[in-house]
């Protein structure tokens, strides 16, 4: 009888190796430099009062997501449509004329 090769063990080792590979690249990816970079960004944001990340610069409302401008749809020129590619990936927040806090006040009362 020929010596049996445990294919299952080989497979389990390969699987384990893949899991280890994934864990190790994940852990090494989480670098000190990355932490420091984020720390630096945090201080810049606090210093210059930057309220938004620069994910996209194509339109004003996707540049400053948290600074809502009502009626933004026709703000650049009359009839100018607002369907920028990036704005379709951001969920609009519900607002009314008075702004967000006022809306909550209304709901509570």
């Amino acid at each position: 009888m020929m010596p049996r090769i445990r294919v299952s063990l080989i497979y389990l080792y390969v699987l384990l190796a893949l899991v280890l590979l994934f864990t190790s690249i994940t852990l090494t990816g989480h670098t000190v430099q990355g932490r420091q970079r984020m720390e630096g960004e945090r201080r810049i944001a606090a210093r210059f009062l930057l309220s938004d990340l620069c994910l996209s610069t194509e339109s004003r409302h996707t540049r400053h997501l948290s600074q809502p401008e009502l009626l933004a749809a026709f703000q650049d020129l009359p009839g100018f449509h607002d369907h920028f590619p990036s704005s379709s990936f951001i969920r609009p927040q519900k607002l009314n004329w008075q702004g967000v806090v006022a809306q909550e006040t209304l709901r509570r009362e």
Partner: peptide
């Protein structure tokens, strides 16, 4: 590219993995 859209100027960011 979905986020960048028509931007002329866009950040070349490297993200920190959030494990």
């Amino acid at each position: 590219p979905f986020l960048i859209g028509w931007s002329v100027l866009y950040p070349e960011y490297r993200l920190q993995p959030a494990f």
